[in-house]
């Protein structure tokens, strides 16, 4: 009976060891990838891998509350915020590999090795005992125990945190707010512009008279030429630079110009 209990705890510790080493390798590899990969999106995904493995490591150390908070707050909220901003800033943006300061990478690598040595020495000199006997506050009662601590010992920092969060939200709103420089177009302005443009009818839908009616298939004009402007802008590709925008708008304007006289399908949106 006693031997059976020992065997079970043995198996549990082996499982813990396997999990730890697996996740350690995964998280260090992904963290290294974060430095080496050039695209910011890949970086974000690798960071998600690191954060999820850290969540499992928290669970391994009898901290279920932190494990869940890590998944919900970090991986769920913070990383999604990163991805949102990445989508706005430009998903195709790549880091340049040109060094602005010569020898910066070598110096950074040396500084990193120095920091690693320093931290390892400090940690090595510290007395790292074995884990204390897991009390009742670790494990199943973890959430209750943490709540008790937060609302008794740490109640003042907790309240200050709320002020911090409100300040951060206000700051983000102020920083992201943009004053409108031109007045908003009313429906009346739009209709006037549409009539003044000379093509009051709406644009042809994609695929009209073409061989397929897929959205990426331009409509055919009466003389058989494709009308580029009938394909939605999102599929034609949103221009990234003003130059591309000019070429794109210029080409569709040319299509409109050469066929506009004979067709009523083409219009100005």
């Amino acid at each position: 009976m006693h031997g059976g209990v020992l065997a079970i705890s043995d198996v549990a510790s082996t499982t813990q060891q396997i999990t730890f080493w697996l996740l350690a390798v995964v998280s260090v590899t992904s963290a290294l990838g974060m430095i080496l990969v050039r695209k910011a999106v890949y970086c974000a995904v690798l960071l998600a891998v690191v954060m999820l493995s850290l969540a499992v490591l928290y669970a391994l150390q009898n901290a279920p509350f932190l494990a869940f908070v890590q998944v919900i707050v970090y991986t769920g909220a913070v990383l999604m915020l990163f991805l949102f901003v990445l989508m706005i800033v430009g998903i195709r943006a790549k880091d340049s590999i040109v060094e602005t300061i010569r020898g910066q990478r070598v110096a950074a690598g040396l500084a990193g090795i120095g920091l690693l040595v320093l931290l390892s020495l400090t940690v090595g000199h510290a007395v790292l005992g074995t884990a204390a006997q897991a009390g009742p506050s670790f494990g199943a009662n973890n959430v209750y125990a943490i709540a008790k601590l937060i609302f008794t010992t740490y109640v003042f920092p907790f309240e200050v945190t709320s002020a911090l969060l409100i300040t951060a939200a206000l700051g983000a709103m102020v920083l992201a707010h943009r004053e409108r420089l031109t007045p908003k177009l009313t429906q009346r302005d739009r209709s006037r512009l549409r009539v003044a443009s000379g093509h009051p009818a709406p644009l042809a839908g994609p695929g009209t008279y073409a061989r397929h009616n897929a959205v990426d298939m331009p409509a055919l004009l009466p003389d058989g030429t494709p009308a580029e402007a009938s394909v939605p802008l999102a599929i034609r590709g949103v221009p990234e630079t003003p130059d591309q925008q000019r070429t794109l708008l210029g080409s569709s304007a040319a299509v409109r110009g050469e066929t506009g006289a004979e067709s009523g399908q083409e219009g100005d949106a």
Partner: peptide, 30 residues
């Protein structure tokens, strides 16, 4: 598992993050 292993992993991840801050040029990645 002794806590020392976890602290060692934390040290390695911290150093990698610090080197990333020094090396990368994109503010998002930093």
């Amino acid at each position: 598992m002794s806590p020392g292993n976890f602290v060692a992993l934390a040290v390695i991840l911290f150093v990698i993050g610090a080197v990333g801050v020094l090396v990368r040029r994109n503010a998002m990645v930093i």
